[in-house]
Design a protein around this nucleic acid. Structure first.
Lengths: 250, 250
DNA sequence: TGTTTTTGAAAGAAAATGATTGATTTTTGA
DNA sequence: TCAAAAATCAATCATTTTCTTTCAAAAACA
């Protein structure tokens, strides 16, 4: 049996059971224990599973097939939690705006409702959206290589064509006085515009964004609801007095 | 057995099983192991499969694309030739429109000039364009899952914002009387509009497109220059009298 | 005919495998 | 709780399988 075949088989097993014993894999694959151990080492390096004493365990959150996009940050877990909650807010029939950015990206795989319309400026999001057969509109404009986002004058005009029930934005800074900020002026304008076109606005942010200020202001705190995972009790009051915060607990 | 025959057979096998062993191919084709290894090397270069130790594996992502599997190496070769010539037409400082579609896609990797502006409705093209640091604008509108193209009313309006030195289009049919045609009415409108916004228009087509007619008309033959690889001498006159054709010779 | 391309065979290199060893971790049982 | 027993582990090595390279014969081509 070929190595990648075995790997597939192992991943299959771990998709069905959260933990599999080495011996179980040995029995099924008819390969030696050494070989299976080597396989597990490789699969662990590729972030496909976690080795545990006696076997291998499923990675939290990664029940789906492994795309190469992710597996970068240690915040992924947190991002997923935040994204999952945000996705649960989307209701049947909604038209929503999805901002570019990795946290918002994680929302897509969690979207349960099907009868929605999505507008986005995030080029990274498109393959996933199309694969899931979600009705998707892209705004036109300059494709910024660094963030894979559509921005610029054309993007603003293009965005103007739509109206949203909800918009979901990523930001880089959240601050009681300075509000929501992001490093790029052009991206800030897009986010701003999206908010004005939307009945409700949501900002997705892990707690590293709190008390940060970056260059371009998007809006004041009260203009959106923040979705985050944990928030320092000491500073919580500074924010809760100005906006509603949903804290997603692990 | 002829080389392309063997290649087809191998692609067929890999369409049915995600992984095939070399020995299995040897048994079926009755060619030597050396030959099969050579075949696999070629097919891997053509991005049709991935070699793995002991055999070959199906590529992730572009698997069940019927059009993809049908394509023989020769076919891809032809597209590359056409695309390469088309790319050589792009001059420093040009603003160009790149239509969605696989032949036009092949142009991107052949683009030598750097100081150009590209506008496209092809979502597939974006990763490649951005990676090559080409200034890229995307038109806004509905993202059509099947072709990964942006189309629709919004796309037309978005396109209207730009002017081009040259536009490069794919079509499905070329016919002396019916002109250029494509199966999707909406896509036809986009192509049409792109032509009107461009000083020069080029249609990229392998010879399977000649004498074909599909649903939606884009334009008459004389409105664009055809770039193709070979053309049947018998019918050549029908086309050359109505348009200029560049025949790219192997 | 001579020339190029394709093919198959063979040799050495590289990779994958399975068994073994001794170390490490977990479990057992007092 | 502790130490012995059992299970699991990483590291190593010999063996097997697969790969690449090379070369000459066969086939296709002009």
């Amino acid at each position: 049996m070929l190595t990648p075949e075995r790997h597939q088989l192992i991943l299959q097993m771990i998709k069905e059971k959260p933990i599999v014993k080495i011996q179980e894999i040995v029995d099924l694959t008819e390969a030696s224990e050494s070989t299976i151990r080597r396989d597990l080492t490789i699969l662990e390096e590729g972030k496909f599973l976690k080795r545990v004493h006696g076997g291998a365990a499923r990675l939290r959150g990664k029940l789906q097939e492994p795309s190469m996009v992710e597996k970068s940050t240690k915040f992924l877990q947190e991002k997923k939690q935040i994204a999952q909650y945000a996705a649960s807010l989307v209701e049947e029939g909604d038209s929503i705006y999805l901002d570019a950015g990795s946290t918002v990206f994680e929302m897509i795989s969690s979207l349960q409702v099907k009868d929605i319309v999505v507008v986005t400026n995030g080029l990274m999001h498109l393959p996933q959206l199309l694969e899931r057969n979600i009705e998707t509109y892209v705004i036109g404009g300059y494709a910024k290589p660094k963030t894979n986002a559509i921005i610029g004058r054309g993007a603003l005009a293009s965005l103007e064509q739509y109206r949203f029930d909800k918009c979901f934005l990523g930001v880089n800074g959240i601050h009681p006085h300075s509000g929501y900020t992001t490093p790029d002026q052009e991206e800030a304008m897009i986010k701003q515009k999206a908010m004005t076109l939307s009945r409700e606005s949501f900002v997705l942010a892990d707690d590293s964004k709190f008390s940060e200020i970056t260059f371009a202001k998007i809006a004041d705190l009260h203009e959106a609801m923040i979705i985050t995972n944990t928030i320092d009790e000491d500073h919580k009051g500074q924010y809760t007095s100005k906006t509603s915060i949903k804290v997603v607990t692990p």
